[in-house]
């Protein structure tokens, strides 16, 4: 039974008869369709389904501090930080785009610095403070960068947005922005398929106060 994303009547985690989850299927589509020129041209979309990979796994118990909260997780050593956040902690704010460092959708902050969570193993992040999009707001008060993204309509579909916002917060912490051109260059690690770039730059300028 074939189910494309458009005809599926199942929920996000439902597994179809061929073992492909809908979310996994969408991930494959996104990856294959990303078309980034730096993507290795002929790479196929195998082995990227989250969840239990084949082979007899080494598991271990690790501690992650996410948005100020400590979590003990028993995980397969192969779990990336991105998959640990999404699949083990059910924090799906952080997105998976390419899973290969090429899009920035998975950007989170580690000790205040932006990184791609798809390129590190969760077990290597145990002594760090991890901040995700879920951790930026203080109670009901949005982070200024979140406010600015809303004010400037800095997204369409919103898929890249958590990564864009975390990246922009990291950019502020780094403090190397002086001009618009600096914003363009230093936000280039976040691809937006909808092309909301101009409004993203406007939002960042507002927070940076160089509008």
């Amino acid at each position: 039974m074939e189910k494309g994303p458009g005809v599926s009547n199942t929920d996000d985690n439902d597994t179809s008869s061929n073992g492909t989850t809908r979310r996994g299927f969408l991930t494959q589509i996104t990856y294959a369709g990303a078309g980034l020129t730096l993507a290795p041209l002929l790479v196929r979309t195998k082995n990227i389904l989250p969840g239990a990979p084949p082979g007899s796994a080494e598991t271990s118990t690790i501690n992650l501090t996410v948005n100020g909260q400590k979590h003990a997780l028993n995980i397969d050593e192969r779990t990336t930080l991105l998959d640990a956040l999404r699949e083990n902690l059910q924090m799906t704010g952080t997105k998976k785009g390419c899973d290969h460092g090429q899009c920035g959708a998975c950007t989170v902050l580690i000790n205040g610095r932006r990184i791609n969570s798809c390129l590190t193993f969760a077990a290597m992040c145990q002594n760090s403070e991890i901040t995700t999009i879920e951790g930026l707001a203080k109670g009901d008060g949005l982070h200024p960068m979140q406010e600015a993204f809303i004010k400037h309509d800095a997204f369409q579909c919103g898929y890249c947005t958590p990564g864009q916002i975390c990246s922009a917060v990291g950019l502020m912490n780094e403090n190397h922005v002086h001009t618009d051109a600096d914003i363009h260059e230093l936000m280039s690690g976040n691809i937006c398929r909808c092309g909301a770039y101009q409004n993203i730059v406007d939002a960042i300028k507002e927070v940076k106060n160089i509008a």
Partner: peptide, 27 residues
């Protein structure tokens, strides 16, 4: 090189040993 996120992760030692981006090496 790369992106701000990757530069925040990548180390000098690892950069010396990064492997080629030849598309056939990847497939």
């Amino acid at each position: 090189g790369a992106s701000p996120q990757i530069r925040n992760m990548a180390t000098v030692g690892g950069n010396l040993l990064q492997r080629t981006r030849c598309p056939y090496f990847y497939d």
